[in-house]
Design a protein around this nucleic acid. Sequence first.
DNA 1: AGTTTGACCCGGACGC
DNA 2: TGCGTCCGGGTCAAAC
Length: 281
Amino acid sequence: MPELPEVETVRTILKSQIVGKTIKDVLIRYGKIIKNVTEQNFVTLLRNERLIDIGRKGKYLIFIFENVIMLSHLRMEGKYLLKSAEPYSKHEHIVFFFSDGIELRYHDTRKFGTMYLFETADPVRIMQLTPLNRVGLEPFDELLTPEYVTSRISKLNRSIKSLLLDQTIISGLGNIYADEVLFLSKIHPATNVKILSKENIKVLIENSRAVLSKAIAYGGTTVRSFKASDEVSGRFQNFLLVHTKDKCPVCNQVISKIRLSGRGTYFCENCQKRLDITNTP
DNA sequence: AGTTTGACCCGGACGC
DNA sequence: TGCGTCCGGGTCAAAC
């Protein structure tokens, strides 16, 4: 389940391995991954393109070629593998053949991942197009201040959990990390954002940074050395405090699980007191 | 008209 | 073993 730290790990490793390579051909084994162009155009436009750089915005990987830009979102279980002429496994859906014989394979058990291809090589322009234009500030962005967040949420009537999951305001926190941030902040996930103090917001931002940087550091240390067939994906489950846990690591009380914004939400009723009664959970 | 919710995509895991 | 249900990130349509 890649979240922002895992995506950043994948970006770093892929960048060191495949920037400079030229695509010879593309094989599409499952086409619904590709969202904004036909399979035919996807292949044609990528053929003979040399990879210049790999960037990232939120959880989107940005593959910058000489004439086109490809976006890739890993969603739940997407991952990239580097192989050469081995039999395809069941869940390898898109294969990029480089001119040196190396193959970049997109593997996705759930088939939830998405790819977009744009006929521009301008990294600035791509930020103005859907879906990247919907990606909000990352927690590490210095522009993400308590004042900014407060201004964005002043008229909203929703739970803090749903706000943390809303990528258009703060990008990078997924369901798991949102629970962790709220636990560290001692804030009940159903708390209405309207009644949060500026100090609450400040603490939430600080803990978002703490959780993500810890995960980035952790993901970076656990990714296996990246050889031909190694998979590129981070591991982060091991340091979780509340998500999918049975007992609170602080007070040992049983962890509660509820549904909020359609997502499984774990929290400690003892450590995360409700500040209000939210009317729209 | 802007904000919020819910269906959808998919297959592994799990329960009966 | 088999079948039904659950789960989830982001998008889009529907509902508020």
